[in-house]
Design a protein around this nucleic acid. Structure first.
Lengths: 337, 337
DNA sequence: CCTCTTCCCGAAAGCGCTTTCGGTAATTTG
DNA sequence: CAAATTACCGAAAGCGCTTTCGGGAAGAGG
């Protein structure tokens, strides 16, 4: 492959000139630039990124902190859509993504430390747990950063319009004639969870609908199993709801399972609307009606906010909230008379 | 943060000694090592990875080439399980993963070029398209590499025991009494697809079962839609099969859809067994019986093969085939009399 | 007391690249 | 034709770290 020295030797120019030719400086003649470029092509020359980063203090790398919750990592059906879109968007600007391990040789270190070690130009955190110390540390650092699916006053963030989404869901059920509408909620330590219960409560209030005791059940961290258990509780109730807005598709899947196991049908006996629009819900029975989060849009917005900061080489604080849409499928029906 | 020079100045030692202390060289006394380490801790010193890589020629980074097929990328339900497990395994050894873009500033370059540019220690390719020029180029380079889900004579590979899996599937259907067993296959340009039809044919032959005309249908690239279309064809047949072994879970989902749309039931009218055991099939109706590929094991094996090469700093060629298991759920039933 | 080891430490070169700052040659201007 | 630009090029320092090699001091052996 060779270095810039070899290139200098071959072409007879100094390494300074070679470097300039390679980097399109204007103070090198077209003729010599052409010679150098050709020689570079012939010897398959490629600049060494480490050397470049070392002297320019720019690494063209973005550190990714991904959800570590219950070992899902990149398998997370919602987050992986975001990261994929983020990757595409940043790629076009020449950035690489680096998934850092938390272990530097023997010693283990924090994400922030590792990112500093790697000298990344920016950080994206896709991890909904705001209590995570690691996340806190990252948000307080001075490296350009964007955090997804979480709110914060002192760094750039992008997330879906969760309260509006919740409102849409409740209104939709209302228009189908439902008046007994429950909510299976995500834990409010997670912003998205909290925002959706807020939206639910707001919508109910606006529609002048009471939230019956037991109609708001916290199902924790968005898993199928937790959704199922939450639905069990609703089904136990003296007067169970006729419709339920579930704060996440995976929980909704669990909820449907619970309904089925009780010998009831969705949507005939009970309507269910989810949140996220993950891939698999198109294939379950019934196909799940849900509030769709636009992962493409979220990823792109995140990329945009981060790239801005990285090119300006300064931290900024901007909030971007992405609109959601209701996707009508087959899990909701008019209330039965 | 500071550099090693600052550390030298503060402690009064030379940078040589500081470096040695940090790297556990034995020719530095415990006393001075302690002083240096403490100073390092106090000033939050972190070594610069680029500088280290530059002088050691080791980057502690692994380049990842991921499936680009139909824009799925990290959303691929099977591959993302592998990469997640691979990530865990390599992380423990101190390696970071880097997802390279194919664009270096203005100029765009190949994956291989980019990986050389980044000076990665090794490469993992998770992309089943062996015809991809980029993949070819990577496999022919001299960088340590491991390729997943694909066979090759001249680099380390790991994949599931596809022919055995196919055999298990067919035998299972046979034991349920089925004799009219069809196969919805993946394209044979993809190794896994080819191996599974081979296994299917072998098994049928061993069981002395004929493969009726039209019973082996190529469904292309493992998508739900293609699976559906393939099943349509089977249903068109004069004497349709009573059971079908589908080469991928997503295709199986499509196949089930097709069966349902024809007013038939799974498994009562027709049994279906899939391949992969992706997350979502536990939630469809009926729950899909399938051949499970152990993504954890595959990812770990890949990590192991790659790490071996990277520490030896030489390319090796080892083949690892991972056993599969049959997961019995609800999509297969005894043939009806 | 002298020589030979052993133990610690540091000077310096090197990894591959960028960028400032001059300097010479060619060109333009008056 | 002399003076002032302009166009091109290169020396050298610097980015932050590792590693070879040699040397001084201290301890061991005779």
């Amino acid at each position: 492959m060779g270095t810039i020295y070899d290139l200098a030797k071959i072409t007879g120019f100094s390494i300074t000139t070679v470097s300039k030719a390679l980097n399109n400086y204007k103070d090198v003649s077209e003729k010599t630039r052409a010679k150098i470029l050709q020689a570079a092509a012939e010897m398959d020359y490629l600049p060494n990124a480490h050397a470049q980063s070392l002297s320019t203090k720019k690494s063209w790398a973005i550190g990714v902190m991904f959800s570590e919750a219950n070992e899902v990592g990149m398998k997370h059906p919602f987050f992986n859509g975001i990261i994929e879109s983020f990757r595409h968007a940043t790629e076009e600007h020449g950035y690489d993504l680096i998934f850092a391990s938390r272990n530097l040789r023997n010693r283990d270190m924090s994400y922030l430390e590792h990112f500093k070690h790697r000298a990344v130009d920016g950080i994206v955190v896709i991890c909904s747990d705001r209590m995570d110390e690691q996340v806190q540390e990252l948000m307080q650092s001075d490296i350009p950063i964007v955090v997804v699916d979480m709110d914060s006053a002192n760094c750039s963030v992008v997330y879906s319009d969760n309260t509006e989404g919740a409102r849409m869901a409740v209104n939709y059920l209302y228009e189908l004639g439902h008046r007994h509408i429950a909510h299976i909620a995500g834990d409010s330590s997670i912003d998205a969870g909290a925002a959706r219960v807020k939206g639910y409560e707001l919508a109910m209030q606006t529609l002048d609908l009471p939230i019956h005791p037991g109609y708001l059940v916290n199902a924790g961290f968005f898993s199928v199993e937790e959704g199922k258990q939450a639905m069990e509780k609703l089904l136990q109730l003296a007067s169970p709801p006729t419709a339920v807005f579930v704060a996440g598709d995976q929980m909704a899947i669990g909820a449907i399972e619970a309904v089925h196991e009780h010998g009831l049908r969705v949507p005939e006996d009970i309507s269910i609307i989810g949140y996220d629009d993950i891939e698999m819900i198109k294939y379950i029975t019934p196909k799940l009606t849900t509030i769709r989060q636009d992962t493409d849009e979220i990823g792109e917005a995140a990329a945009e906010l981060l790239i801005e900061q990285m090119t300006a080489k300064e931290r900024r604080t901007e909030r971007r909230v992405i609109p959601v849409t209701l996707i009508e499928r087959a899990s909701c029906a008019p209330v039965k008379k």
